[in-house]
């Protein structure tokens, strides 16, 4: 069954929530059922932030997750908090520039991408989450790059549309990393 329960977690300001919204939007364009649930309140401003995204072929029971099939973590505390939530066979993607700890789990697929460093080399910190999302859509098949691009056009304000070709290059680097 096509069911992706995705958690994205890290510090506020790392683009956690915008990554989740992009995924949900891309999922909608795939004609899937989607839900997006952000953490909210003070943790968005410097503390930990996370969001839960479900992309499913069936109507979604609960947008509130207690486990997940894929996990993107962008800092150490998030790995500690959510590592055990991954179902066996799940996918863990870490920003290895920020996450020094390594998961010991043998029943999941682990991908490490130094996303923050790669983004800094590109001169745009805002690309960090795109590298990780590239890997996610590649290994889970939860959305296609084509629909991800459409999601960028749908969500970003018009004055940022000129950046989208470069973001798509970044996405492809992430997919193949």
């Amino acid at each position: 069954m096509f069911l992706h329960e995705i958690i994205i977690a890290g510090f506020g300001g790392q683009g956690i929530l915008s990554a989740g919204r992009l995924l949900a939007y891309a999922g909608m364009l795939e004609n899937r059922e989607v839900s997006f649930l952000p953490s909210y309140g003070p943790e968005m401003r410097g503390g930990t932030a996370n969001c839960m995204v479900v992309i499913s072929e069936e109507s979604i029971a609960s947008p509130v997750l207690n486990s997940c099939t894929a996990l993107i973590v962008m800092n150490n505390p998030s790995l500690e908090k959510f590592e055990s939530w991954l179902k066996p066979g799940g996918v863990l993607i870490t920003d290895s520039s920020m996450v020094q700890k390594r998961s010991n789990r043998k029943d999941i697929d682990i991908f490490e991408i130094p996303a923050t460093e790669l983004a800094n080399e590109m001169g745009n910190k805002a690309y960090t989450n795109i590298y990780l999302l590239g890997k996610l859509i590649k290994v889970t098949g939860c959305a296609t790059a084509e629909n991800f691009e459409k999601a960028l056009y749908g969500i970003l304000s018009k004055n940022k549309h000129h950046m989208i070709p470069e973001e798509m290059d970044v996405l492809k680097v992430g997919m193949d990393y």
Binding site: R21, E33, V34, F36, L37, Y40, P63
Partner: peptide, 10 residues
């Protein structure tokens, strides 16, 4: 509640 207010769906 906060979940319904904050979540996004189609």
């Amino acid at each position: 509640d906060g979940v319904l207010g904050q979540m996004m769906e189609v």
